[in-house]
Nucleic acid binder design. Structure first.
Lengths: 115, 115
DNA sequence: AAATCATTTCGTTCGCCATCGAAATGATTA
DNA sequence: TAATCATTTCGATGGCGAACGAAATGATTT
């Protein structure tokens, strides 16, 4: 396998709920994902993510599981902020995926090719 | 869900064997994926794909299943050429995935955002 | 038509994982 | 410390899908 990390991230994104979470953090969460000057992080809490994705008022064990799966694959980051967990998307990981598919889309031979 | 097609393709690529197949067709199959002037297609046969991915001498039912899953999601195309099925990767689909992640990697608000 | 080659369909088995509710943990506030 | 809030862990259930072997289909050659 070319890239273990890529494979794991694609597996994480193969679940519609998890894909939805990443899209929410990246595109529908304006001003809520940034690093403060004191090193702190401001972003959507796990509960807010859950609310948006499932409509539940507080985080469910299922969404908690999905968030940790996404964090384990490197697609998001979670840090504790008081009693809440704050989630931010890892834009570098998304850019890396974009590059992976962009390279393949060229359809050019790699070093493993016969030519 | 933003894009049904994207979700289905990511699900297809979440299996390591299928990811391997796509990588093979895109990067390690030089000169074997092109459209001839008579409209015919030249590419790797299902058996060749299977040989490369699993080492089996002829196609297995498992790889056949994976190929059809990839075709159903639009990531590859299969056409019959005599008694063999010829497989070609859909570079447009890969480019589309690259664009999808590239857009998200910008971290900008979409129309669904609160702002 | 018969034989052969390439692939697919069928039916089964098995393991992984999404989901759920309830109990436990971590952190803050009163 | 007690109470409350946010999240996680635990344990169980159910369903999807990857893998496999055998039989069936499609296409070519003799």
């Amino acid at each position: 396998m070319a890239n273990e990390m890529i494979s794991r991230q694609l597996k994480a994104l193969s679940d519609p709920t998890r894909l939805h979470i990443v899209e929410f953090l990246a595109r529908e969460c304006c001003g809520k994902a940034s690093v403060l000057e004191d090193g702190g992080v401001i972003g959507a809490t796990a509960g807010e993510v859950c609310c948006h994705v499932t409509g539940a008022e507080q985080i469910t064990s299922t969404v908690s599981h999905h968030l940790h799966e996404l964090a384990a694959s490197g697609l998001i980051e979670m840090t504790r902020q008081g009693k809440a967990m704050v989630c931010t998307v890892n834009l570098n990981a998304l850019q890396n995926l974009a590059g992976y598919f962009g390279e393949m889309a060229k359809g050019e031979c790699s070093e493993g090719c016969c030519c």
